[in-house]
Design a protein around this nucleic acid. Sequence first.
DNA 1: CCCAGTATCCGAAACGTTTTCGGAATCGCT
DNA 2: AGCGATTCCGAAAACGTTTCGGATACTGGG
Lengths: 339, 339
Amino acid sequence: MTPTIKDIAKAAGVSFTTVSRALNGYNDVNEETRKKIVRIANELGYSPNIAARSLISKKTKTLGLLLSGITRSSIKDNIAFEILCGMNDRAGELDYDLVLFNTTSQKQKMKSYKSLCMERGVDGVIIMGIRLDDPYLQEIVQSSIPCVLIDIPINEKNVGSVSTDNVSGSYTAIEHLIRKGHKNIGMINGHAQAYVSVKRLEGYRLALEENNLVFREEYVADGSFAESGGFENAIKLLSKHPEITAIFCASDLMAIGAMQGLKSMGKTVPDDVSIIGFDNIGLSSYCTPSLTTMNQNKYDMGYRSAQMLIDMLEGRHVHPHISLHAELVERNSVRPISN
Amino acid sequence: MTPTIKDIAKAAGVSFTTVSRALNGYNDVNEETRKKIVRIANELGYSPNIAARSLISKKTKTLGLLLSGITRSSIKDNIAFEILCGMNDRAGELDYDLVLFNTTSQKQKMKSYKSLCMERGVDGVIIMGIRLDDPYLQEIVQSSIPCVLIDIPINEKNVGSVSTDNVSGSYTAIEHLIRKGHKNIGMINGHAQAYVSVKRLEGYRLALEENNLVFREEYVADGSFAESGGFENAIKLLSKHPEITAIFCASDLMAIGAMQGLKSMGKTVPDDVSIIGFDNIGLSSYCTPSLTTMNQNKYDMGYRSAQMLIDMLEGRHVHPHISLHAELVERNSVRPISN
DNA sequence: CCCAGTATCCGAAACGTTTTCGGAATCGCT
DNA sequence: AGCGATTCCGAAAACGTTTCGGATACTGGG
């Protein structure tokens, strides 16, 4: 059996109360006895029972991670993984552990996020990949559990958010295309239930209008962030509107799909039509042509979100909404056109 | 405050013992009272305190995940992520949660894996990405904590393993090259402290010898699973041994590096030299030329490892070593040669 | 020599469950 | 009516820790 505080007490000839205090660095225990206790604890290979501890302290030093999008389909664009790496690193540095809640299994259909968190006893939770219309979003946000949302800014007590500046990001993407001489610019967006999509659309529209180009409803299509969505919508867009010379895709995966779609209809990128993506996933520098895109600092998003949540938990003041800058990375899927 | 079993008892007019039994499905409680109790529990939004429960039951229903390789560098080849997805799915189905231990932070330098696991109170642990010479490998394996290792078969009580059949995998890779007419086949391996590397080398050698080709020490180099390692060693190999017409790389990432290396020295793949990889990562179908490789069923590795660990924990009999089949996926990085 | 103050320690309660043991009530049967 | 079996429920212990409120012994000043 693994040794407890009582075993140490017995071996040291003191009460187990004293052992507890000695190990926790209280000052009302003699330096001699403390050393003795610590020595014995090491000899016995003692490590505190976290269940007992958190039963009384009400803290578990664990962060919950709710990722709705962690499924086989999210493997190609491993954005979730990069974010997770950042989160894991920061949490580890601050001595917290991460527990994964998988919301895909059917058990979650029955159980609310909130009771899931309470049961697991996590101190706080980070949520990513959730849709705006997810019924649980409201629930979790209004519960008293501290949480930070990736990519959904919500003003509520105990909830923070981190995302990239999507409107400025897509603004610079479009501006880049315009500088290269493009005038008829299509967009393949995600879907209306993603906050990033509405923001990226906003930036697209803004950039157009500020450059005296007209925004056309029919130039934008929803590809639901899927490679196949990019494929199909690129074809649709260019069939209906052959005057389009450039497409801005709200994700790299859709951009890659779009490139394939264009290829399938005999058009070449970037000679016939330019493509610019968003995310800068690993694939984008390896596909042909390599993809010009807006880089999102995914690792940092994770890192900062863990930091923010822990700050909230430990009572430090936080600015509840962090917005990271997205910068252009130029590759070979955009070419200038003369007009 | 979140309601406890006692609050329910008070509201239902029974003892809290009865509440506990009612909620846990014991048969010695009247069906009427049970319904009443369940109703009240729902009304109050009760969910059991897991710390208290696991304090007495000694089980936490959580699996620890020790991944030594989860760092920024492992983002490109997101093998770890795919495995994690499979693990997470199966664990979720069986009502276990996953907690991530990050062994990169310095706190682990002080603390042994074993005490880390004990402290966290995980029931068992899955370990991946660990090197054979990691001093903690022995420690964890000899501790009484049930664990399953990814890619390291060890015969010890309470430890299982899952990996792909690496010798057969690399055997078929080499055989494929031989069938295509290649005779001088180089290999870029990982490093000696990876079990998979010794096995893949074994398969390479075996395939050569069984086809009456001689195994040459100087035809194999270690690229330590890095893209840069593939780049440099491909150049080295072909500079010293220009007769080589095909290279087998022990990972796709190295294969991609090798392709770039060859390109940098003016050789083209597959016309001048054929490349075959191992892993079938997401990138490999998008690079140019697309990579012929041996597919590892990464998702399944995770899925099966979670399954095995939970089987062990729940006292079911398991076959301690699972070996998954690797199949060839043909793309465009190898071409037949006539001789 | 006494008293206040300090250093060091201990006992007991508390956290929210599960589980064991036993008691009371009810039932069926003779 | 008597008796064993069955059904339902409660009291209490246990899990390993933290923390509160003292208790003891020693110190030095008066």
